[in-house]
Nucleic acid binder design. Structure first.
Length: 338
DNA sequence: TCTATTTGACCCCT
DNA sequence: AGGGGTCAAATAGA
């Protein structure tokens, strides 16, 4: 099976190189047949691997790969009568993609979560809660998160995300209460397979003032980042654009692109991650704690067209989002354009 | 009645 | 061996 999977990986690599070195416009008559052949080989290796694991499953689905039975832990429970013996029923993930964020409050992150467990953790004052994506079963989304209170006063929570969301139900929270965007770099190149998660959170109070809530960001690659939070002046429409620019510090980068018509700023705050801990970016430790929320929260009056813009040139990602009414389809279009 | 949460049991992994 | 992640029955809430 290892040989079969290795073959699949090799062919997938060939396909990737072919697509990478083919400059547009694609010559479909030239590239397509070769690509289709490679895809067929890849699928074949999966089928062979499955036949090794489970001959019946591979035979039943050899011509319909999209319906391959997920090799999930739940299968055991679903196909066997209720029994106490759950041996082998689930596989614990091993070092899947993880991202950790620490916040001062439990804010929504735009995804629907279902709590499935809680554990008392050794040497921890508070229990750890376990959540899975609500769409685990209907969309086979494998994302999970763990939330743990790590401090009482001031309250502080550590949320650890595992896996990527493959569901299509982002931004289902009320746009008038929470905004948060998680972006995982789907275009990681050979030198960086780690996802980067940028989170921007903000709440609106009763007066519709914006209170950005992102307090820390941890990237699980080795890059050091700077977050530049810039409160700009009110624009002509009476709105207060908020600019958030993230860039990596340890690489030579061009000036970040900032999408805004407003250039002057009324308050600035730049946060740099600690030198000796390049994976951790923590605004709480870099900004004056007693005032930083006031500073960030001073975006009044109501903003109906806040622009969240971030540029990380290494990965060529940039996004704008209208904070009062995020249209996810538009966001997807923007991602596609970039 | 349906969906979400709670919680003890189970089992993987270090 | 035991900490911690997951399951699933019981329970709560809409």
């Amino acid at each position: 099976m290892i040989g079969e999977l290795s073959r699949g990986r090799k062919v997938a690599d060939e396909l990737r190189l072919m697509l990478r070195h083919t400059t547009p416009p694609l010559d479909a008559t030239l590239v397509l047949p070769a690509a289709q052949s490679l895809v067929a080989t890849i699928l074949e290796t999966f089928t062979h691997s499955l036949s090794i694991l489970s001959p019946t499953a591979a035979a039943a689905h050899s011509d319909e790969v999209s319906q391959l039975p997920p090799l999930k832990s739940e299968d055991c429970a679903a196909t066997t009568p209720p029994t106490k013996d759950r041996r082998g029923c689930y596989k614990r993930r091993r070092s899947s993609e993880t991202s950790t964020i620490e916040t001062a409050s439990l804010s929504e992150d735009g995804h629907a979560w279902r709590k499935y467990g809680q554990k008392v953790i050794l040497n921890a004052k508070h229990p750890r809660s376990y959540f899975r994506c609500t769409h685990k079963f209907d969309q086979d989304c494998q994302a999970t998160k763990q939330v743990q209170r790590i401090e009482d006063d001031p309250p502080r929570f550590r949320t650890t995300y595992h896996g990527r969301h493959t569901c299509k139900n982002l931004f289902n929270s009320s746009p008038h209460h929470h905004h948060m965007m998680m972006m995982q770099d789907a275009a990681a190149d050979d030198h960086d397979h780690s996802p980067i998660m940028w989170s921007f959170a903000a709440t609106h109070d009763d007066d519709h003032n914006i209170h950005p809530k992102t307090t820390s960001l941890v990237m699980n690659d080795s890059s050091c980042s700077t977050a530049h939070i810039n409160n700009t002046n009110t624009n002509a429409a009476g709105h207060h654009p908020v600019l958030v620019v993230l860039k990596q510090e340890n690489k030579e980068l061009p000036e970040p692109q900032i999408k805004s018509s407003s250039s002057s700023s009324s308050s600035d705050a730049t946060f740099v991650c600690p030198d000796h801990d390049p994976t951790k970016f923590d605004t709480m430790s870099s900004a004056p704690p007693p005032h930083h929320h006031h500073q960030l929260g001073a975006f009044s009056p109501a903003a109906s067209s806040d622009v969240y813009s971030c540029t990380e040139s290494t990965h060529s990602m940039e996004m704008d989002m209208m904070s009062m009414a995020v249209n996810f389809d538009d966001f997807l279009d923007l991602q596609t354009l970039n």
